[in-house]
């Protein structure tokens, strides 16, 4: 997706565009049991994701569902020493704060899958702001769209996936004060 700079965007935001931000490594390894939660939530019976023999035959060992990619980088809801809400896509929340847009939804998501993610892997990622739109009004309210790319690697440095999110941050007229 091409980078985009809109004239009415503050320098604090244009400075962010195209720069890798928030490089992080997960504080826990990929867990087979936690991966089952996604399979259960979607009633996904793919034997590749449940059966060791099938996984050994096809991929040389157990893997987790490819679309669980982002969950292995999501912070705990709480952990010792943490202050405030723990969020995964920090650039998204930076933009909400900078533009004073308390509400947000994701509208588009692209995922490209590379090496499979396996139990025991420790995933790292970084975020890159690709573009920010000018002011837009939708049925939800007035705000802006932005695109954030996230690259994921495993502990060996192998690329396991790339995600691109389009978010819409907005002000909803008449909404309660944000808490």
């Amino acid at each position: 997706m091409s980078e985009n700079v809109n004239d009415d965007i503050p320098a604090s935001v244009t400075d962010m565009i195209g720069k890798p931000m928030y490089p992080e490594t997960a504080s826990f390894p990929v867990e087979r049991s936690y991966g089952y939660n996604t399979l259960a939530a979607t009633q996904n019976g793919n034997p590749l994701l449940w059966d060791d023999e099938v996984a050994d035959e096809l991929t040389g060992g157990m893997i987790v569902a490819p679309t669980t990619l982002s969950l292995w980088m999501r912070p705990h809801f709480w952990e010792p020493g943490a202050q405030g809400e723990q969020v995964a896509l920090k650039v998204h929340f930076d933009l909400k704060r900078i533009f004073g847009l308390p509400e947000a939804v994701m509208t588009d998501n692209t995922i490209i899958f590379y090496d499979p993610v396996r139990p025991g892997d420790v995933i790292s990622n970084q975020q890159v702001l690709k573009s920010v739109s000018g002011p837009k009004t939708t049925k939800l309210g007035a705000g802006r769209f932005w695109v954030i790319d996230v690259e994921f690697h495993n502990q060996d440095g192998a690329l396991v996936g790339v995600e691109s999110y389009t978010g819409f941050g907005y002000n909803r007229p008449g909404a309660r004060e944000a808490k």
Binding site: A41, T67, T68
Partner: peptide, 9 residues
């Protein structure tokens, strides 16, 4: 992510 997982399934 859950919508992605439904698409995968």
């Amino acid at each position: 992510p859950n919508q992605a997982a439904w698409f995968e399934r």
